[in-house]
Write a protein that binds this DNA or RNA. Structure first.
Lengths: 245, 245
DNA sequence: TTTCAATTTGAACCGGGATTAAAAAACTTT
DNA sequence: AAAGTTTTTTAATCCCGGTTCAAATTGAAA
């Protein structure tokens, strides 16, 4: 685990809470805020040092706190990982809602969903968490997570199907297409690095373009314009290294 | 780790080798064969019990041998994982060679490559190994592996580029398209199960179809018939129209 | 049968990392 | 300032899983 001396945002000690404030034992409130901060920092640790060998110690020292102190905020390690998974998934589900709210063609909705999904994964640093297994989750944790994940998958598939029904898309196997798209996205954190050649914007836009292109019906009818990119942040012509092999 | 009582092929003890036989300290030979058998069994363990928490003990008991005995054949655990990675990658590189040997259009070559790649990952059980990190590798192991992996990635990209130059493909960002395709494939072992609804054949064929469809030029010109498999490796005669970009 | 090398066993070793619990510190309230 | 609660530290503890090693076993050759 790479020690990043400057990156740690060293959280101030949480003052003892005021009494009298109505609060269920949950998210907001001082302790809850602290929890969120810790989770964010896990994202941060994962960001600039990819790996599955993430130790409690790493998280603690990123925050300038002690190993044991983490156990005041979380039951155990898998709880932390689980929360990260959920945060990440909720970002994606928000993108799904946003997509569904839009009144455009299925392709437009799907575009919104996928771009939001990718940004959620890359920009909040929780992306790398996707590599970890669900094995270690408690049954009800896994169940809760799976449910949300299935919502997302179903959302993608239903948009593809809608496009097929409207004649906008053409797709032999909706389920496999969905797996392809989501798998490709889940894999991004394996190679993405913030200081790498691709911005998360570019990745989101261009990969989504590719995914959608594979769905468009290919009889030449009703093809949409190549669609205007927002700010021409396309990475210049990338014809570096083209060995004909 | 799921104990699979019947699945273990319990290897016979390797008899002491005959002397006088010329042999470098490497692959074939009795010890070498034993090594291969062990690696195959790792694949088998991974197959019917997905996870990253693969222990030496698991591997040993799958083979009906002892923990310690494994260290007679391999230096350490990461060596075993490394070898699995290499076996898996070599299958894919074989698909690359096969693809390059074929004299068809880039799309046909790419199809051969991707289908072979997917089969290599799913059918030999090494696929799940892809989820593990390369972190734990020794530097030269990592270097050797990365080199091969880069060969594969370059192979994919060069085929896409060739298709673009020949006017068969159209692709905004070759590198991101390549990442999309390979990422989607690497992710398959996360959801694939041999007894699931999809055969590896079906996955290979239909996902590859989808990947290629996203690359076909979409101006309605020179579109190929919905694709006839195998024979008719046309495409060798359209050398006009070299779109730049 | 004896001998020697190859193989296997089984127990012990060992370190690292998660987890816990008790005490200390910090902060609030009265 | 005293009391009480929340937060943090510190120092064990615990346990798992990789690794080592000497001894036992096996098999081949002489």
């Amino acid at each position: 685990m790479v020690r990043t001396p400057a990156s740690s945002a060293r959280i101030k000690s949480a003052p003892a809470r005021k009494k009298k404030v109505v609060r269920w034992n949950g998210a907001p409130g001082l302790k809850g805020q602290r929890r969120e901060a810790i989770l964010r920092s896990v994202g941060s640790v994962l960001r600039n040092s990819r790996l599955s060998s993430l130790t409690i110690q790493d998280i603690a020292s990123e925050l300038g706190m002690t190993k044991g102190n983490l156990y005041y905020y979380f039951k155990d390690k898998q709880d932390i990982l689980y929360q990260c998974h959920m945060r990440c998934m909720e970002l994606s589900l928000r993108a799904l809602q946003e997509a569904m709210a839009n009144d455009g063609a299925p392709s437009e909705k799907l575009r919104i969903l996928l771009i939001g999904h990718i940004h959620g994964i890359l920009d909040d640093g929780f992306g790398s968490i996707l590599q970890t297994d669900l094995e270690s989750f408690w049954p009800d944790q896994r169940k809760r997570y799976i449910r949300k994940r299935d919502d997302l998958e179903r959302g993608v598939r239903s948009l593809i199907e809608a496009g097929v029904l409207l004649g906008e898309f053409e797709c032999d196997n909706v389920k496999l297409a969905g797996f392809s798209i989501l798998g490709a996205i889940n894999w991004i954190p394996k190679w993405y690095h913030p200081s790498g050649p691709f911005s998360s914007d570019q990745i989101a836009e261009e990969m989504t373009d590719y995914f959608l292109r594979g769905l468009q019906r290919h009889d030449g009818v009703a093809r949409k314009a190549p669609r205007e990119r927002s700010s021409s942040k396309n990475g210049t012509n990338n014809y570096h290294r083209m060995l004909a092999t």
